[in-house]
Amino acid sequence: MELLCPAGNLASLKAALNAGADAVYLGLKDDTNARSFAGLNFSAPQLAQATQLAHSQGRKVFLTLNTFPKPGHEQRWYQAVDLAAQLNMDALIVADLSLLSYAHQHHPHLPLHLSVQASATNLGALSFYKEAFNIERAVLPRVLSIKQVRDLAKVSPVKLEVFAFGSLCIMAEGRCHLSSYVTGQSPNTGGSCSPANHVRWQDSGSDKLTRLNDVLIDKADASQQLGYPVVCKGRYVAQYDHDAKYLLESPTSLNTLSLLPELAQAGIASLKIEGRQRSPAYVSQVTQVWRSAIDTYLNSPASFTEQPQWSQALAKVSEGQITTLGAYERQWQ
């Protein structure tokens, strides 16, 4: 079972490799990936350096191309595909049909991983991408219960990768317009959810407020912590109600450590850590814990138990210091 870790820059890449990642995923410094933040990601020469570094240690490196090419600008995405092939990278993570088609036709030997942004949640969708583009792997959206993951793994025509830890996206990924409804930019169109230039942290007397393009996402007194303002984790007032509540989800992170044995038994090929936008310290901490957990499990599957120090370490780097199993757990749904 592969441990796949995020790298937003060379320092994070090194942190991931040092802490025991089997593979890392990263993106270019433009809108070809959905973490298009200032100061993040790799130039073409840096990508070459990153690939060389990972390969020199016998690790894999995947290029994330998970946005959807805009009409008239497709060349930027095609060039990124060509670059990955030229650098001998180990896989592309792609969501868009035209891009899958381009990569499959021009670089048939470059493995394709279906991005979570393609939102393939079932056998029919996976079969479509396998037959049309010979994808080797698919990343499952965070909408399936553990039972559904297990059932799908039994029949899937491709290897499966799941999110193990990190920020929790609660919508079917790649089909969420909440960010663009408020800001005009979505991961699909602009390369980021809740882009930082629309975010405002305000102090209003005794209250702290977070706004996204002027829309009030959350409000709290000094004793409470506010999360980064994304639409799905705001506090709103429902019709016929008076109090503001987290109607969709509260600021929390996904942590599936307790599901590790089940994911392994289901035959999941890769565990993905979210967080290309996070610091090298985060990458290092999370990678260490998951390396340790996976190794402990593989050494003795029958006696595996989740160790308290792992969860403590992960809680420290989690949003709101709260973690959940998200949709894996039917009750959450």
């Binding site: 909408v143 399936l144 609660i170 969420c176 409804y181 799905c232 429902a238 109607l247 949709a327």
Partner: peptide, 17 residues
């Protein structure tokens, strides 16, 4: 705008899905 595994109406009424 979006689809989730979670039912937000049931959650609002504190009912399991």
């Amino acid at each position: 705008l979006a689809h989730s595994a979670r039912c937000f109406t049931a959650k609002h009424y504190q009912l399991p899905k």
